[in-house]
Design a protein around this nucleic acid. Structure first.
Lengths: 242, 242
DNA sequence: CGCTGAATTGATTGGCTTCAACAGACGTGG
DNA sequence: CCACGTCTGTTGAAGCCAATCAATTCAGCG
């Protein structure tokens, strides 16, 4: 069950580590942050494997993921799952220009997660009074768009080895920007099935190719631990895309 | 070569058939349309198989496709092509929040095409003075986002028959909304390779499955002509997604 | 220590690609 | 108007990559 964090225990936007990548990014407008924060409706705590919202629901809030990992996915009628995004701290989820519309994907936590939520009226108010927030929101949408087209082209046309390399290289880059030392062993709360569903292959085959990568001294990936051995080669396999 | 249409021959936004789907959509603000039109920088005429812009370029304008068909695609390093969108009249192309950024996809015409172009400064001016245009632009980005995630999930996880059905059903729906009678024979300027590159299979295999569909009395597709025989079944194959 | 779920590994199948040959449509020029 | 070349699309045969099914190993945990 999603748990609302009591108001007196909620943390401030000012101290948020995720802010660097989030809607309320740092900038010259820091003075008005406390003003903005008023419109952050509340903070939410979810356990592992809980849903923030599910595809098909009319779910009117939007969220910034503050802490934890989550997956955004769509489901086909035959039950097949395509993960469209691995959500990391700072990612903005669930925003729709029309809040009455059913949402087109589900968000499920992979770890315990903290979210900051925004109601449509709060978002409206922020947008109407802060041109920088509008621009930033557009930028976020734009980036999501670019990333989605890139994934589409990789999933549609790349070879399996390239798909895996792309997925990992992309993830590593994003973790790096969040201050994680990716030269060490990295903790990754993703199952084989999660990765497979993100790149459109089966977990069985993924397993085999990961062994290949290990033999080729590119990377190791076992027990939710990822160790990049040859980042340069991984990125080359991933393509100039990164 | 792209050809600029002389100012005195440019058509008005007011009479534009594509407007219904475009940025300057009809609405209560029709009175200010002539005001908006001032910021439409110019109109462009392209022949078949010409580029509006190419992936990797710094191309600062954005466009509404007014007439014709075009493809938006990305290219992998090995030359593989993924078509990310079939552009039809009204579609808004090439917009980026940061005009200095290189563009992430190419646009090539499939037929003679007419485009209405907007410079970044014109867009900025429009956005700063018309809250409805901001909202409309957000809505467009949002829709593109939703569509891209849907394509990703189909290309990643659906079976070939479903992919083809989805591609065609989606196209038919969009043509219908543009006033084309899709019960008749429809002219489609797409080669086998184009369709194959949109759904991530080979043209050879596509050809075979199209024969199957013909035998199953679902649709025919030959010589750039498409005839839907059993729309209901096509849509069912395509999935509840539509 | 045994239970459970995930990951690996092996054997087999099959869907799709690849390669190659052929047919059809279209445009051009004789 | 037909011959010719080109390009696109179709068809056939062969092979391979990845999926499937099943058995085994492994890690985590009570």
């Amino acid at each position: 069950m999603p748990k609302k964090i009591p108001a007196n225990l909620q943390s401030s936007c000012m101290d948020c580590e995720a802010r660097q990548f989030a809607w309320f990014e740092p900038g010259s407008a820091d003075l008005v942050l406390s003003e903005r924060q008023k419109y952050r409706s509340s903070q939410l705590l979810l356990e592992r494997n809980e849903y923030l919202f599910r595809e098909g629901e009319v779910h009117k809030a939007a969220y910034t993921l503050k802490e934890g990992w989550a997956i955004c996915y769509k489901q086909l009628q035959d039950g097949q799952r395509q993960i469209v995004h691995i959500a990391l701290p700072g990612d903005f989820l669930g925003y729709q220009t029309d809040p009455e519309q059913t949402i087109d994907y589900s968000v499920m936590t992979l770890t315990e997660c903290k979210f900051c939520s925004f109601t449509p009226s709060a978002i409206d108010h922020l947008l109407e009074n802060d041109i920088n927030l509008i621009k930033r929101l557009m930028e976020i949408q734009n980036k999501q768009n670019v990333a989605c087209k890139l994934k589409l082209s990789i999933v549609g046309r790349a070879q399996t080895r390239h798909k895996i390399a792309f997925f990992l290289a992309d993830l590593v880059r994003r973790l790096e920007r969040r201050g994680i030392n990716t030269a060490d062993i990295i903790s990754i709360p993703l199952s084989r099935e999660d990765i497979a569903d993100a790149i459109g292959i089966t977990p069985v085959h993924l397993s085999r190719v990961i062994v290949e990568f290990h033999n080729d001294k590119i990377m190791e990936c076992r027990h939710n631990k990822l160790k990049i051995i040859n980042l340069k080669e991984l990125q080359e396999l991933a393509g100039s895309a990164l």
